[in-house]
Design a protein around this nucleic acid. Structure first.
Length: 412
RNA sequence: GCCGGGAUAGGGUAGUGGUUAUCCUGAGGGACUGUGGAUCCCUCGAGCUGGGUUCGAAUCCCGGUCCCGGCCCCA
């Protein structure tokens, strides 16, 4: 028999794994919510152009692109920032600023899968639109740190600012600037030095590598001088310090993208391999690309699947389960009892097969913490027999007392 | 796209160019008819795929697929 395989780079999730994912997702949602961010949702696919405007034609080869029946070129979303900003321009422009939005959504990229990299993957992202202050930037950084910490992973949060590098590179041709950013992003100092030597800029190469190694503001400014952004940068970092945020200054973050305008930040998980970046973000201006006013924005996206990989297998407290075994005479009462248990929020499962009570109990005992036994005797008396499957103790109780007893106990 | 390593029941595994492929676990059914995961019995279930070498291939060779590690890329 030939079985149909799942598409390359996709995954199936069994209930155990889904429960873990939902739990972590819940941590992130809760934090976003407490910072005043509210959930939005955009289409799974968009016009291809939305993504090429932002990132160039080069990305088409790495997207799921298709022509719909009306002849339009569409793409499954490879990320959410462009769709969110498109949404903002389409229908959010008259809302009071700043907007605080978040999303949890799957994205698609046609790339070679490896650990922590899949063709369908999930991002938890935050976009803050229409504020332009150090505090606004600090807010998203602090929230990002809080989310990763709540996820239970070990990570380091690196915060930088593009102004440092831009000031050093300002004298170069755009092509050389891009090249330099590429080397810096890869932390390839040898490549950088070699390239700069070839264009007669050895001094600049050493300044850049020093900059990338700076871990405090005074040494960074000693390389760049008093750049116009200095006050704003100092303010940002003093807010982070005041808030007790754990971060590392990293002026070497290049984030190869043209639309990032200032602050940039990334986080790396400590126990992942080549794909160890679990979060990326920064300040950007994008709305004007999609027909809106130029709008200061900042945000980040968490690579949710990498967070899950980094967490590893975490044992999770299972939900309390009640199983019901009944005889034919007790079935009607058992059904009523089951709905009462469920109304009380308890996970309640009827034994779906098994002729005898003993058989039903052995089925129920595989997954349940408590067994509710309901036969003719219970039905006649309006009572239930509640058996604690962990201790073996059982007692005959009124329905409400049985519910209270179960609710008052701990899962196994 | 590049380099390398893999692929044996649902999961985890052993093994050899030669009978009927090993073990653990799992799943289903039955015995047990008002007391439990037990026990007993039965059943299900595998060498990724397509070619080649060979009397004979799960084993050796080649292509493909998928997974893993690294590179590239990373919106």
């Amino acid at each position: 028999m030939t079985m149909i395989q799942k598409p390359r780079g996709t995954r199936d999730f069994l209930p155990d794994e889904m429960e873990q994912r939902r739990e972590v997702e819940g941590f992130m949602r809760r934090i976003a919510g407490t910072w005043g961010y509210r959930e939005i949702c955009t289409p799974e696919f968009e016009e291809l152009e939305l993504f090429t405007i932002r990132s160039g034609e080069g990305i088409v080869g790495e997207m799921y692109v298709f022509e719909d029946k009306g002849g339009r070129m569409m793409a499954l979303r490879p990320e959410l920032t462009a769709p969110v900003l498109r949404m903002y321009v389409n229908e959010g422009r008259t809302l009071a600023k700043p907007l605080r939005w978040y999303y949890f959504a799957d994205c698609f990229r046609y790339e070679r899968p490896q650990k922590g990299r899949y063709r369908q993957f999930w991002q938890f992202g935050v976009e803050q639109i229409g504020a332009d202050s150090a505090l606004a930037e600090a807010e998203v950084i602090m929230m990002a740190g809080e989310m990763l910490a709540a996820s239970g992973i070990s990570f380091s949060l690196h915060v930088g600012h593009l102004a440092f590098m831009r000031s050093l590179l300002s004298g170069l041709e755009p092509g050389d600037q891009k090249k330099a950013r590429m080397f810096l992003d890869k932390k390839d100092n040898q490549g950088l030095e070699g390239y700069f030597a070839s264009i007669g800029q050895e001094d600049l190469a050493s300044s850049l590598t020093s900059l990338a190694g700076c871990r405090d503001l005074p040494s960074a400014f000693s390389l760049t001088g008093d750049i116009p952004e200095k006050d704003r940068i100092c303010e940002l970092f003093s807010i982070l310090d005041a808030a007790g945020t754990r971060y590392e200054l990293d002026p070497g973050i290049a984030r190869g993208l043209d639309y990032y305008s200032g602050m940039v930040f990334e986080a790396y998980a400590e126990n992942l391999g080549a794909e160890n970046q679990v979060l990326g973000g920064g300040t950007y201006r994008l709305a004007h690309l999609f027909g809106g006013e130029e709008t200061p924005s900042c945000g980040f996206a968490v690579g949710f699947d990498r967070v899950m990989v980094s967490r590893g297998e975490k044992s999770r407290q299972a939900a309390l389960v009640v199983g019901i075994a009944s005889t034919p005479e007790g079935l009607e009462y058992a059904l009523a009892a089951a709905s009462r248990f469920r109304e009380a929020g308890l996970r309640t499962e009827l034994a779906l097969s098994g002729k005898s009570l003993g058989q039903q109990l052995s089925i129920v005992a595989r997954s349940a913490d408590f067994a509710l036994i309901i036969g003719k005797r219970e039905s006649d008396e309006g009572m239930v027999t509640l058996k604690d499957l962990r201790s073996g103790a059982q007692k005959i109780l009124a329905l409400d007392d049985a519910i209270a007893e179960v609710k008052g106990s701990e899962p196994r």
